[in-house]
Amino acid sequence: MRTAAMAHQSKEPVTVPETTPTGTAAAAPAMSPRRRRRLGDATFSGIATTILVALLAVLCEIGPRAGWWGEEVLPSTSSIVASAADLLGQPQFWGDAARTSLEIGLSIVFGSVLGLLLGLVFWKLPTVGRIFEPYLVSFYAVPMVLFYPLAIVVVGINASSVVILATIMATIPVALNTTVGLNGIRPVYLKLARSLQCSPRQLLTSIALPAAAPFIVAGLRLGVVYALIGSIAMEFVTAQAGLGYRIRYLYEIFDNQTMFAYIFVVLVVSMILTALLVAVEKLLVKGRTQ
């Protein structure tokens, strides 16, 4: 199932119920070499990514120049970067970027909050969870773009309709992952909370949320990605402004050069967002098994 697959992405065995603690003395010394290798992994993937991106850039530079493909198919790297730099001086670009950023930002915030709340409700009220969770799961498969006409009828052709649909898309993975994470809390933590007489608030903030954090963070990562995809895709379909809208517009008037510059900018933005997410994730689940 989708939720299970996402859960595994977190690479965190912490929430997996483990009745018997693992080997005593073996755990401590085994730690340091593994940690060193992991650090090596990070450096390695960093270097590998840089080399890959550089190779791709070189290939795209040589391609049109050597006549492997035409400039109109994919312009050379240097010209894309140049026109992207050009864009940075245009007020229209900043207008589009501001609108798209606002849409993505709002969808991330609303999606995360709504998803967390839904996850908490599904956890606290298992009956509600059992009724509604299957719908949420199947909602995954529904192309949200189809609801665009409905959103337009309800709120009109503006940023709100984009935000609404992107929020729905972002909410689902956050809600499902939060539910999985909370339902997977090791029973002994709840027993501990009871024996220490934690208040409901302490139970939530000091036990439940941190215990489910690896799953919640994985859900938030997906939520952010869905908010990004949702916003750009909705703009692409029907909108009067925004980066997605601009890309479609440029494509319709055959301005490939500028279109690729916009695509390049969107790619860079999503890469930065992903890198930020990884940093946030590391911060949130620091000190755990690794």
Partner: peptide, 28 residues
């Protein structure tokens, strides 16, 4: 709180250091 329990299962909270794990009971 006058009755302390030590459970069979590992009940340390993995997101807290040893000090913060012990402090947790006192915080609560």
């Amino acid at each position: 709180r006058g009755i302390g329990v030590v459970f069979q299962e590992d009940s340390t909270l993995p997101w807290r250091t040893v000090l913060d794990n012990v402090r947790f009971a006192l915080q609560v």
